[in-house]
Design a protein around this nucleic acid. Structure first.
Lengths: 143, 143
DNA sequence: TATTGTTATACTCTATAACTATA
DNA sequence: TATAGTTATAGAGTATAACAATA
């Protein structure tokens, strides 16, 4: 009994298209790589810590477009699992320098494999030039 | 002290681009049209109810790509505010037919104005053909 | 005065599992 | 057996407000 629903132009609303694409991406990652026990957001934090030893919370926040309080909860969860460790900054005593633990390094390696597979699933539906175009257009949408 | 953060290719990850675009859109809507007291998702439900009197929860779920439980909480919130009303379906006693209340009609009208302004903010950074292209590409990302 | 980290709190969205009623 | 609605529950993400320590 799939009644024919009139979308009444709702499918033209770009905000909704973005929301649905986002949902689909989230769902696919959770369904296929949930076993890692890490979300894409958490992986992003580990990724940045791996490439930038000594990085501070405000750097995570800026790079990933997050509130400081949001950053805290993410960082906290990763510290609780001993993937991320902290030490006071030498140059600015307000800051805290984060780095990956040995286990964090290992887990990040596995996570990058998952991200690669997930991105392949996503990219498969586009040509190379469509992919470039999509990245370019999405990059224009920011706060 | 904006340390130069090495993104290490993280900005190439399409999933992250989509997430950040989604976040920016959410934020802009909340900041500029939060006064309505409605989220874009809630507006989508009202929108569909307005165009499809007698619509059922499963129709909302299918059209907006939601779980049934998720749909419930959305519908419930809108019923509590008497924007949406229910009546048993005549043809299938499992289903419930939803329709907008008079207040729901009025609120949806105001919400559509907000959505239009919000979409203009979003669309302003693209040419007409880029917009078409972006919609087309995003539509390919689904569950 | 501004920045960094922190805590408390709250809301939206999402989903799973188990249940009832109806088809 | 399958579908529609429901409830309980949980987790991720987001954000505001207020505060202490440091710059």
């Amino acid at each position: 009994m799939a009644a024919e629903i009139d979308l009444d132009g709702l499918d033209e609303v770009l905000g909704l298209r973005i929301r649905r694409a986002h949902g689909a991406v989230q769902r696919h990652f959770a369904d296929n790589f949930g076993g890692l026990g890490l979300t894409q957001k958490q992986i992003s934090v580990l990724w940045l810590a791996g490439a930038n030893p000594g990085i501070a919370q405000t750097d995570f926040a800026r790079a990933l477009d997050m509130d400081r309080a949001t950053t805290m909860s993410l960082v906290h969860a990763l510290e609780r699992r001993t993937l991320l460790a902290r030490a006071p900054s030498r140059t600015d005593r307000r800051r805290i320098a984060f780095r990956l633990t040995a286990e964090g390094e290992r887990v990040l390696g596995a996570a990058k494999v998952a991200i690669r597979a997930h991105e392949a699933w996503l990219a498969d539906r586009f040509t190379a030039s469509e992919l470039t175009q999509l990245r370019r257009l999405l990059a224009r949408i920011h706060r």
